[in-house]
Each structure stands twice: as C-alpha cells, then as structure tokens.
Amino acid sequence: MKKIIYISLFLINSLVFIACGAYSFTGGNTGKAKTIQIDFFPNQAQLIEPALTQRFTNDLQDLFTRQTNLTLTSSNGDLHFSGEITGFRVTPMSGTSNQTAAQNRLTVTVNVRFENKLEPKDDFEKTFSFYSDYGANSQLTGSVLEAALDEIIERLTQDIFNASVAKW
C-alpha cells in the first residue's frame, strides 16, 4: 500500500514539474531561437539628445539578455531588431493662471523593425512611444533628464519585448 502511495506521489510531482517547465516567468517565448541581433538605433529626430541612441540600444540589449536565454550576436541573429529614434520632443502640458506652463512632457518615439527568421509570421514594423512629465520650472538637464529617460526607456524596451516575444 505504501508503495502505491509513493508511486502516485512521484507521478503527481513529476507531472507538476513538467507542466511548470513550459512556463516562463518573464512571459517571453523565443521558440527555437538561439541568437538575437539588436542593431544600433540612430537618432533621426529633429531634436537630438546625444546619449539617447547608445543608452536605448544598450538597455534593449540588456533586457533581452537578462529575460531570455538568447545569445547576443552582431550579425545573422535568429531574432533581429533594427530601427531608429524618430521623435524627441518637449511639449507644455498644463497651464497656470499666468498663461505659462505648469508642467512639460518629454516624449520619445522609436520605430522598430522586428524580424524572426524562424517564424516570419511574427515579423513587424511598429512605432513605440512613451513620455515623462516634469515641472515647468525644471530644466531638462542633469537629474531631471536622467529620471525622464530612465522612465521612458524602461517602458519603451518593455513594450518592444512584449510585442516581439511575449506577443502582448
């Protein structure tokens, strides 16, 4: 009788572990892909922030290497990202009684081309955009710019990850 209980427990535990093995905690499904190529994203916006291109490209590469088992390659990757930064703009958001801006919004827009060489039906070209608000009395330099870019780049890279491998 004990033997049957042990065998049953072993089978149940085995099934649970096998079923959980297909789940990814990051939500990403890279299929049979082993490598990823993420090209440099040049800044083609009218207003240019010099550090943005390198920072965005590095953060996108870091996200994929941290949350997937893909190996980063410089050419011929199974998954391939390319594109450009197409927008970097500051707009006033809310006014005061003195007809001045109380808050400004920094918006960054990125055009992304994704190619999945193993599953061509997953290919896309999309525009991703996100923003960060900051006080109108603040200059968009130093820590204000860093905080805004941190928020924007984190959201943009996560949105790109979700659209490409998480399929959200």
Rank of each mutant, 00 (worst) to 15 (best):
Q54I: 00
F124W: 12
D59K: 05
I85E: 06
S129C: 07
T71M: 07
L106A: 02
F64L: 12
E146K: 09
A102L: 11
G87T: 15
L60M: 07
V90D: 12
L79F: 06
N104L: 10
L106Y: 08
D133G: 08
P120H: 05
N98A: 14
V112A: 01
Q54C: 00
N137F: 12
T73F: 05
L79N: 13
F81V: 01
S75P: 00
P120R: 01
E151C: 00
Y134D: 13
R66D: 01
T127P: 14
L149P: 10
T109Q: 13
P120N: 04
A102G: 13
L149A: 03
Q103D: 06
D133S: 10
K121Y: 11
D122F: 08
R105C: 07
S94M: 04
D123Y: 12
L63H: 10
A148D: 07
F88A: 00
V112T: 08
A136Y: 11
T96S: 15
L63Y: 05
L140H: 06
S143G: 04
K126S: 14
N104F: 09
Q67C: 01
D78W: 12
R113P: 01
V110G: 02
R55G: 03
Y131P: 11
A147Y: 12
D62Q: 04
D123R: 04
S82K: 04
S132H: 10
N111G: 03
A136R: 08
H80N: 12
S75Q: 14
P120G: 06
T68D: 03
H80M: 07
G83N: 02
G95A: 10
S74A: 10
P92D: 09
N111W: 01
A148F: 01
F124D: 12
T71N: 07
Y131F: 15
R66Q: 15
S74T: 09
T96R: 08
T127G: 14
Q67L: 08
S138L: 07
S75V: 13
L63G: 01
L149T: 06
L79M: 13
F88P: 02
E151I: 00
D122V: 04
R89C: 01
R113I: 09
R66K: 13
V110L: 01
T100N: 13
Y131V: 06
L140M: 06
D123G: 14
N116Y: 10
L63K: 14
D59H: 11
D122H: 14
R55L: 10
L63C: 04
A147P: 05
L145I: 11
K121S: 14
Y134S: 02
L106S: 05
F114P: 13
N76A: 14
Y134C: 05
S138G: 07
S75H: 06
L60W: 07
A102P: 03
D78M: 07
L106Q: 04
H80W: 14
E146G: 11
T107S: 10
E125W: 00
F81T: 11
N104D: 15
G95L: 09
D123Q: 13
T57V: 00
G87D: 09
Q139C: 00
T71C: 03
S75G: 03
N111S: 09
T68Q: 06
G135N: 15
D78G: 06
N111M: 04
N76Y: 04
R113K: 13
T127K: 08
P92W: 05
L70Y: 08
A136N: 03
F130E: 08
H80A: 12
R105T: 08
T65N: 00
L63T: 05
E115L: 09
